[in-house]
Simulated scan of single mutants.
Amino acid sequence: MTSLQILRSRKARWAVPAVAAVAVIGAGPLVDAVTASAHGSLPPRTAAQLLADVSNARVTALSGTVVETTDLGLPALPSIAGQGGPGGGAASFSSLVSGSHTMRVWYDGPDRVRLALLGQLGESDLVRNGTDLWSWSSHDNTATHWTVPAGEHGTPMEPGSAIGTATTPQQAAQAALKAIDPTTQVSTDPTATVAGRPAYELSLVPRDSRSLIGSVRIAIDGVTHIPTRVQVFARGSSSPAFQVGFTSFSTATPEASVFGFQPPPGATVKQGEVPRSSSHAHPRSGATRAAPDVVGKGWTTVLVAQLPASSEAGQSGLEGMLGKLPAVSGSWGSGHLLRSALVSAVLTDDGRVAIGAVPPQMLYAALSHR
């Protein structure tokens, strides 16, 4: 989900959707038998109770600082032209795939939201204030403005925008909780502390040893019941390969001035076009791209998809990236392997990609699947 889609989605509340709680409760005795111990500062809660708390949580306002850290052990790869690079410390929402990043968050209802990604040498902002939506990057001092129809909680996305994924603890928790089923060992602990506040910690451990993921730990604020930290550990590792969480957190209503964005002096200002709903959108270049194939289920799911066509500059950058990766081949064809602590991916020479939190052998099997 892109940063602008965070603001657009009516389902992307500050609480995990009720479907996550239903998934846990549906696990039956597995969840009901697991209860948080009583030695912490919070009263004991079962995992099912915690997920019900999360699904019912309603926070009307909040602000805070979110820090995301990713250490997947990926090889150093060149950036693809037109997609942005390290930027020497400049802040870009497309850079949230490695290293450590800090983001400020302000929320006062679905029509008043601000995200500020802070870099050592710059900042990127997304600001929704009523019918006005702004994005701004200090890297090139460019601002884009959209006018959102009154009463519409959706947020338009600029086609070709370089803004990538901006992850909040709530979104990361939502993705992790979807994986809960009887293949997951679940436990809870009421003794966690996040941003100086007592929290429960929900631990999810895959029972399938083929998964590269060792565990996912989700901290749930003891007062507001919203997820405030998510940590993902690779199998056999004691340090998280990915974590995102609040380092400061407040439910006080932010000052109105926070949402009153004005482009800085000298900024290049562009007017974005509000796209029509997807049901009326015209497919690009004739045919609509086929949906990815899903092979397997749960923690060992593999997605196989056709890569989109690249521009000449993008193709050159992709070839440069592939040159850094080891070549692999088999009955499924040939390609290049990208392997990290949590994720494996194969980019085939015939334009496909297979990706999953699994060893490469399972990707090869998925590519051969018909």
Results as ranks from 00 to 15, higher is better:
38 A>N: 09
284 R>P: 12
351 G>R: 03
71 D>P: 01
276 R>T: 12
8 R>N: 15
353 V>H: 07
82 G>D: 09
215 S>Q: 12
254 P>M: 05
100 S>R: 15
97 V>N: 14
84 G>E: 04
126 L>R: 07
159 P>K: 02
318 L>Y: 14
180 I>G: 06
103 M>F: 05
157 M>F: 07
220 I>Y: 10
292 P>Q: 11
106 W>K: 05
354 A>S: 07
189 D>K: 00
154 G>I: 00
130 G>K: 08
172 A>W: 04
366 A>R: 06
266 G>N: 10
135 S>R: 12
87 G>F: 04
174 Q>W: 15
177 L>G: 04
65 T>F: 02
369 H>D: 09
193 T>F: 11
14 W>F: 05
42 L>Y: 01
5 Q>F: 11
312 E>L: 13
338 L>I: 12
28 G>P: 03
335 G>A: 11
20 A>H: 09
290 A>K: 15
272 G>T: 02
145 H>V: 07
165 T>M: 11
17 P>T: 04
275 P>L: 12
155 T>F: 08
290 A>P: 10
15 A>G: 14
142 T>V: 12
114 R>I: 08
157 M>H: 10
351 G>Y: 02
49 Q>F: 11
143 A>C: 03
352 R>M: 10
6 I>D: 12
242 F>I: 04
80 I>G: 07
190 P>I: 09
227 P>M: 05
2 T>C: 13
66 V>G: 03
366 A>M: 02
142 T>Q: 12
42 L>C: 04
124 S>Q: 15
184 T>N: 04
263 P>L: 11
154 G>A: 15
73 G>C: 02
107 Y>K: 03
82 G>I: 05
96 L>W: 04
327 A>M: 09
124 S>H: 08
301 T>D: 09
242 F>R: 10
251 T>G: 01
304 V>M: 10
160 G>Q: 13
156 P>Q: 06
332 W>L: 06
30 L>E: 14
3 S>M: 09
345 A>M: 13
316 S>F: 10
194 V>G: 02
283 P>A: 13
327 A>W: 08
15 A>E: 01
110 P>Y: 04
74 L>T: 10
97 V>C: 14
14 W>Y: 08
77 L>M: 05
8 R>Y: 09
29 P>Q: 12
252 A>L: 10
147 T>M: 11
291 A>T: 11
208 D>F: 03
65 T>V: 11
107 Y>F: 13
286 G>S: 12
78 P>F: 04
38 A>W: 04
326 P>L: 05
339 R>P: 00
84 G>V: 06
176 A>R: 06
13 R>C: 00
184 T>V: 01
116 A>D: 15
190 P>D: 10
164 G>V: 01
124 S>L: 05
176 A>L: 14
156 P>C: 02
51 L>V: 08
67 V>W: 02
314 G>W: 07
346 V>L: 13
278 S>Y: 08
84 G>R: 10
324 K>P: 01
302 V>Q: 04
91 A>E: 09
356 G>I: 06
345 A>H: 01
176 A>T: 10
63 S>R: 06
110 P>F: 04
4 L>A: 14
263 P>F: 15
25 I>G: 09
13 R>M: 00
120 Q>V: 14
82 G>N: 05
204 L>C: 05
342 L>G: 03
186 V>G: 06
307 L>Q: 14
98 S>C: 06
104 R>L: 15
190 P>E: 02
275 P>W: 05
